[in-house]
Structure formats: structure tokens, C-alpha cells
Design a protein around this nucleic acid. Structure first.
Length: 436
DNA sequence: GCGGATCAC
DNA sequence: GATGGTGATCCGC
């Protein structure tokens, strides 16, 4: 095999490009590309180069490349005997059926606090106003102020990398108790508008305001303005909202027309990476099979390919994404619906088994404490640990009785088969998903 | 049921 | 010098 074929060169240059993008972190592509993102990515990559973290990312990137090669081979094979016109016609039929399920009667709102942790810090320390600062926990950023974001600083980024991008960056330590305090307050406000509202993390949620608007003879827009004003009045924090007939997240503060055509126009140019569930890897895989512009509009033009790759990508999920149809029911999760509880710690590399077991004991004790608070019990104990190479191992064991004690959690020590640990995670499942 | 991977926040 | 913690889900054994 000649190693300098055009295809080879292409694959290799793609690989470095995707690695550089990967190193920029999971949230970098999410907010839309900055003008000088290439330069930012270069700085990040240079700062990482040579580290074990970098080597691990390189390995994972390579694995995705191999996955892509397999998928392309499969695609080529499946395409050989494919009557494209016929498949497209049957896809069009399926799309019609899905279109019939579109329900435009519900007023669904997605509310999302602006730079939540950062703005809470700003609230409690006004001297941060206008400054480039970020909130940091365990060496990793959880939020960045809008001023800092201009430098390419993003949540999920290592603090020392952020400092390279923005040397004057002020680092503020996480204060979790403070955020949950305010989170409770905000969720309380959202509840007044929809008692069944569904929180998504501590700073955002989905509301169905159909009933509220009916009862108070309000339009959705008026209602959402009132929600946002109430949050600001009671917390002095700002919130953005998107209004739509289902849970597809609109962009920022936005009301989507309640009309199939307008919704499809919206998704047509929407980068597929912004769709919940499409992350960095799926974006790369989809790009490889022809979602070239990486927008949802390409789902339609590539419907024949996608139909033969149903297994890999989920045909109906993608078609519904193209149509801009998603669930429009909002329901709070009940405590009973929770499926697992866990505790995780990262530490500097431990080599001696005794030290590792001591750490494991700490994590087990922490998990037992959290379990007691909620009266939680489970049947499957999973141990996850990470080596200093960032390689992760998982070992699970299901038992025939309910586990609640730290002694039983600590028993996972039998499953450790390495040293050089930097992270330990113990997870307890209430019930594993039943096989179909 | 288990282990690896991906994803969201 | 250095890259988090919690919970969910899907796929291929």
C-alpha cells in the first residue's frame, strides 16, 4: 500500500484537525465558532502537547477515525445494490407519517440562566463587573464571564490552559452551596408557572405554560417576559428563554413560529452539533457520511444514506430532528425514577495498594452518606477507576439483595487490578435496564 | 448482565 | 506541573 495516496493524506490531515478540535473541549463547538477559533485551538493544543492527557485524547481521536473508516466501508457496500430513488421515496413517506404527528398546541419554554455560576459570583462580588473571570473547581472551569469567553475561555477547560488564552483571567473558587441556594429560589419561581416543570441541571428547565397562559389570558411571550422579570426581581440574575411547540432548544431568547414551515426553516441551517444528543463524536461520524455542512437540512438530502445506517445513527431520531419535532410533554422526574447514585474522586496518582484502598474507603463512606440522605438502596455495584494515562476501567457486579452499607461498597476492592490510579468512582444502580 | 463509549450540564 | 463530578443511555457482546 502506498502511504502517500491523496486519500491517506486527507485522512491524516483530517485527523490532526479533529484532534485539535477535540482538545479544545466538549463545549468549544457548542457555542458557535469564534472568528479566531483556529488560533485559539492552536494555543490549547500547544499547551497540552506532550502530556498524558494529550496522548489519551490522541488515542481516542484515532479510535474514532477507525470507526469512521469502518462505517464508510459499510456504507459503500450497502450502496452497491441500492435503488436510491426508491429508498428516498420510502423515506419521504416516512417523513409524511412523522409530520402527521406534529402537535403545535403546546407552549413549551426552555429557560436557562445566563452564565449562572459566574453571575452568582458577580452578584456577591460586584468588583468582578466587566472583568475576565471564571469559576473553577478542581482545576477545571465550570463557567466563564462573557468578557473571558471572548478569549476562547470555556467551561470544562483546565484552568492552566485558560490562563494561557487569557493571562489576566481571575479565578474564583466554586461555592456550590451558594448556587444550590439560588437554584432552589429560581426553580421555585418556575414552579409557579408549571407545577410539573422539569429541571435540567441546577440552572435550567423546561416548562409547559399552556395552562398558565390560558388561565391568565396571556400570550406565551407575555408570560415568558413575566417569568424573566420575576427571576430578575427576586434574584437579580438574568435568564434567557426559548418558546416553541416542543422541546427543541431555540437559540437564546427566541420565539419560534408555531408553524411547520418556520420550524423546518429553523432546523435547516441549524448546526447538527447543537442538537441535544449530538456531541463531538457523532458530529464527526455524521460529517463522514455526508452531513457535509453539518446542518440538519443535510439530514433530508442524505436521507438515503441515513436510512441504510439506521442502526448506527437512529433514522427516526434524525428525521424528527430535521422536522423539528420532539417530545412536547413536560414532566418532573420523581425520586422513584432515579436509577443510580454514585461518588467520584480524582487525586494525584497513587501507586501503593494500601493508599488506593484508603481512598476507596473514603469514596465508599461518601457514597454511603449520600445514600442515607435519600434512603437509597441498589443491586448493582460498579467500580470505575482511571489510571494516570487517563485510561478508564469499569467493573460491575450485581447481587441478589439490596445494598446500602459502605462495607458492601468497599468490597469492590477485589475488582482493582492496577496501580497508578488517579480517580475512583463507585456507582450503585437500583436496577439495570432489562434486555429487550 | 458487563464493559466501553458518548453525552448533558 | 497541571484536564471535574453526577447521572443517563446505547451498543456489542
Amino acid at each position: 500500500m502506498e502511504s502517500n495516496s491523496p486519500k491517506d493524506t486527507l485522512v491524516r490531515s483530517q485527523e490532526t484537525e479533529s484532534l485539535v478540535k477535540r482538545l479544545a473541549g466538549p463545549s468549544s463547538g457548542k457555542a458557535g465558532l469564534a472568528k479566531d477559533q483556529t488560533e485559539i485551538n492552536r494555543i490549547i493544543s500547544d499547551a497540552s502537547k506532550g502530556s498524558k492527557f494529550y496522548e489519551n485524547e490522541k488515542k481516542k481521536d484515532k479510535e474514532v477515525t477507525v470507526r469512521i473508516e469502518k462505517i464508510l466501508k459499510y456504507k459503500e457496500e450497502a450502496f452497491k445494490n441500492l435503488d436510491v430513488a426508491k429508498v428516498e421515496a420510502s423515506m419521504d413517506h416516512l417523513i409524511e407519517q412523522l409530520e402527521e404527528q406534529r402537535d403545535l398546541t403546546q407552549l413549551i419554554v426552555h429557560v436557562d440562566m445566563d452564565a449562572f455560576f459566574a453571575n452568582v459570583e458577580l452578584l456577591d462580588n460586584p468588583s468582578l463587573a466587566g472583568k475576565t473571570f471564571a469559576v473553577v473547581g478542581k482545576g477545571v472551569l465550570t463557567t466563564a464571564s462573557y468578557e473571558a469567553r471572548k478569549f476562547g475561555v470555556r467551561s470544562g477547560m483546565a484552568a492552566f490552559i485558560a490562563k494561557k488564552l487569557c493571562p489576566h483571567l481571575i479565578l474564583v473558587e466554586n461555592r456550590h452551596w451558594r448556587y444550590s441556594e439560588i437554584s432552589d429560589q429560581i426553580m421555585g419561581i418556575f414552579h409557579r408557572y408549571d407545577p410539573d416543570m422539569c429541571p435540567a441541571g441546577c440552572d435550567e428547565g423546561y416548562l409547559n405554560i399552556t395552562a398558565y397562559c390560558e388561565e391568565h389570558a396571556m400570550t406565551a411571550e407575555e408570560c415568558v417576559r413575566e417569568i424573566r422579570e420575576t427571576v430578575f426581581r427576586e434574584t437579580k440574575l438574568t435568564v434567557s428563554a426559548g418558546i416553541a411547540p416542543n422541546k427543541n432548544k431555540p437559540n437564546g431568547q427566541y420565539q419560534l413560529d408555531f408553524d411547520a414551515k418556520a420550524i423546518k426553516a429553523f432546523t435547516h441551517d441549524l448546526p447538527i452539533r447543537k442538537v441535544p444528543g449530538i456531541g463531538r463524536v457523532s458530529e464527526r461520524l455524521l460529517e463522514a457520511i455526508g452531513i457535509k455542512a453539518s446542518t440538519c437540512g443535510d439530514i433530508y438530502t442524505q436521507r438515503a444514506v441515513i436510512s441504510i445506517m439506521d442502526k448506527q445513527f437512529g433514522l427516526v431520531y434524525l428525521l424528527r430532528t430535521y422536522l423539528g419535532i420532539s417530545s412536547n410533554t413536560v414532566q418532573a422526574h420523581t425520586r422513584e425514577e432515579r436509577k443510580s447514585i454514585g461518588a467520584e474522586r480524582t487525586f494525584s496518582t497513587l501507586h501503593k495498594l494500601d493508599d488506593i484502598l484508603a481512598k476507596l474507603d473514603e469514596v465508599a463512606a461518601e457514597l454511603e452518606k449520600d445514600m442515607q440522605e435519600d434512603g437509597w438502596v441498589g443491586r448493582t455495584i460498579t467500580l470505575k477507576y482511571k489510571l494516570d494515562t487517563y485510561r478508564v476501567f469499569t467493573r460491575a457486579k450485581s447481587v441478589d439483595h439490596w445494598v446500602s452499607k459502605k462495607e458492601e461498597l468497599y468490597a469492590v476492592r477485589q475488582m482493582i487490578h492496577s496501580s497508578h490510579l488517579t480517580n475512583i468512582n463507585i456507582l450503585l444502580d437500583w436496577q439495570r435496564p432489562a434486555p429487550p
